[in-house]
Design a protein around this nucleic acid. Structure first.
Lengths: 153, 153
DNA sequence: CCCATATACATGCATGTGCATTGAAAAGGA
DNA sequence: TCCTTTTCAATGCACATGCATGTATATGGG
């Protein structure tokens, strides 16, 4: 019952393998360069392009698709490394705002060339821009399903 | 230098988000059904369709794209749960062979409907078979790059 | 045959993650 | 206003992971 079509299963398998392949390349490149892991980059980048007076942890949570405690601890470590600062939120006594430091900005700037080069090697050297666009178009359907198309609606 | 094209970066982002979305759906479904996590399924499935006289851990390692110690401990847990058996390899004194038990076969059979249904919901309900094929075609280029196309060759 | 090196797998230790819970403040209703 | 419910975030505890290393066997050169 509701067992998916073979092609759909194949697509899922390909998705997993491709993601894993690229991810390994990136992780290895960052490690080899003595840089922090990709998760740190994601946080730094989210903070850098977010409101400059700070981003709330729960916003990071939804942007990065991470569980709440994971964001909490990730911020702990980034703060410990001096890449992020945390202040009490003025509008909400329960909340915090995370702000990227100068060191954090510098670190992200150091990470990007390594990260970007790894993406290029793993992805850019193997697919065309046109294929990339195709990928984006199809994958977005998964991430943001069209309204009214899902079962049960 | 070697910083990738915007579309390539976009494709990587989409890839991560899509994989994460589907994966969450699957994890949640398995957990809700009180079943083991996806990694266990992968091992069980690899063993079930592999040689019935056993699969070597290092083979699992390359098939599942997992680090060596990860396979070692994953097998520990599966053995502890009675889903897998391990014997000394006769051809190689250093080695082991992992064999799926009846209970393991039964467990995989219980997991598949839940797993499959989750794939269907997250993927099958959102893309067509044709789009799935497109996805497979492009993603395979990433996983298994064509010879002579990589930089440096 | 002996030795150096490579391969298969396990494991101690530090670190990271998941789950459940807690504490605190905000929001909403009577 | 008071009280209940909801939301934001931190944390204790058990478990999983990563790294480095250890142990054992195989392999290849001399």
């Amino acid at each position: 019952m509701n067992s998916p079509d073979k092609k759909i299963v194949g697509a899922w398998t390909s998705l997993v393998k491709a993601q894993s392949t690229v991810r390994c390349e990136i992780d290895a490149a960052l490690k080899k360069a003595g840089l922090p892991a990709l998760e740190w980059y994601d946080v730094l980048w989210a903070l850098e392009r977010g409101e400059k007076d700070g981003v709330r942890p729960f916003q990071l949570q939804s942007q990065l698709l991470l569980p709440q405690y994971s964001v909490s601890r990730l911020l702990d470590r980034l703060i410990g490394a001096g890449l992020v600062e945390c202040r009490n939120c003025e509008q909400d006594g329960r909340g915090q705002v995370a702000i990227i430091t100068e060191a954090g900005i510098a670190m992200r700037a150091r990470m990007w060339p390594v990260y970007g080069a790894a993406i290029q090697r793993a992805l850019g050297d193997n697919i065309t821009a046109r294929q990339a666009q195709t990928l984006i178009d199809v994958l977005e359907k998964i991430t943001a399903p069209a309204r009214g198309t899902r079962a049960g609606r």
